[in-house]
């Protein structure tokens, strides 16, 4: 199947490993990602704090482009903020005719229109529910057996709307990694917020949230945290030094994108998956997957 792909700004920079591993995984599974042409920034959480109509209009341009380019194909957004903001825009425009009228007027300035036909999907949802666990396992050449993984969902792929999984206790990532052989550790903070942009604006709070999360995952025996979002990833990975200094801790827990783990199982190389770019090294020894 072919999907329209919205990488988002972080995947061009700090989260290149997410972009590379996602493309590799889809290719290895025989699915095609076609990048949305000339996509613009989704506006993230920052725009909604400034002006509502503008935030929706900026985002709606992407939906209009996806509608024109995609002809009914789903739009895949791997960053939780993009996924959440694109979904929210689509929902607001369907539920608030008055807002829709204003956004239509703004889009018309660029000879664009959005008719509400794009489905916004997170790649985790697509892998688990479209491609299917069995089809993925069938293509696995290595097993994640012996690897203790803490699945971390963060906030915005499961909230606020009930999307593809439970909002309090999602299992999609647990099932995916478990099916590929990993030991999925149970810990109570898998949907607890990492603080998002608070790491930048109120670091005392952001560092504490991430410290609690990492400590909890490590105490549960995790050897690696699997993330689904670029901002969660950078908060949990790149700030470990700052966390250790502040709290006198000795955390050194690798944090990988879930697609990097899936890619390893599918036989992709570390460089191809961007694993060589992690700050906390992660190079598990994996067995051949005769038994996956």
């Amino acid at each position: 199947m072919r999907y329209t792909y919205f990488p988002g700004c972080s995947l061009e920079s700090t989260s290149r490993g997410y972009d590379r591993s996602l493309r590799a995984v889809f290719r290895l599974l025989g699915h095609e990602l076609e990048e949305l042409e000339d996509w613009n920034c989704c506006g993230s959480t920052a725009y909604m704090s400034v002006a509502e109509t503008m935030a929706l209009a900026v985002c709606a341009r992407n939906l209009a482009l996806a509608e024109r380019q995609g002809e009914g194909r789903p739009l895949i957004a791997p960053c939780s903020a993009c996924y959440s903001v694109l979904s929210k825009t689509d929902r607001f425009l369907r539920e608030q005719p008055e807002l829709k009228a204003r956004v239509d007027e703004a889009l018309a300035e660029a000879r664009l229109a959005y008719h509400g036909t794009v489905t916004i999907r997170h790649p985790l949802d697509v892998l688990v529910n479209d491609v299917g666990l069995e089809a993925i396992a069938a293509r696995a050449t290595r097993s994640l057996a012996g690897l203790k993984v803490a699945p971390y969902y963060g906030c915005q792929i499961v909230r606020p709307e009930r999307g593809f999984d439970d909002r309090e206790a999602p299992v999609a990532l647990d099932r995916l990694l478990g099916r590929l052989g990993a030991t999925v550790v149970d810990y109570p903070m898998k949907v607890r917020c990492c603080g998002g942009m608070l790491m930048t604006t109120a670091d005392a709070v952001g560092l504490e949230l991430c410290y609690e999360l990492l400590r909890c995952a490590a105490a549960a025996g995790a050897e690696v945290v699997a993330t689904t979002c670029p901002l969660c990833h950078i908060n949990l990975e790149a700030y470990q030094g700052a966390i250790n200094r502040r709290f006198g801790a000795k955390l050194r827990l690798p944090v990988a994108f879930f697609t990097q783990l899936v890619g390893l199982a599918l036989g992709a190389g570390e460089e191809e998956l961007g694993l060589d770019r992690l700050l906390v090294p992660f190079a598990p020894a994996l067995a051949e997957a005769a038994h996956v």
């Binding site: 061009e12 700090t14 989260s15 002006a51 929706l56 209009a57 900026v58 341009r61 300035e109």
Partner: peptide, 24 residues
């Protein structure tokens, strides 16, 4: 680690986007 993209990626239709933003 090559994780900071120094070159700003810029969309072709920046002028269109600005029109949308101004109108909104």
């Amino acid at each position: 680690k090559g994780r900071i993209g120094l070159k700003a990626s810029r969309i072709r239709a920046v002028a269109d986007l600005r029109k949308i933003m101004r109108r909104a």
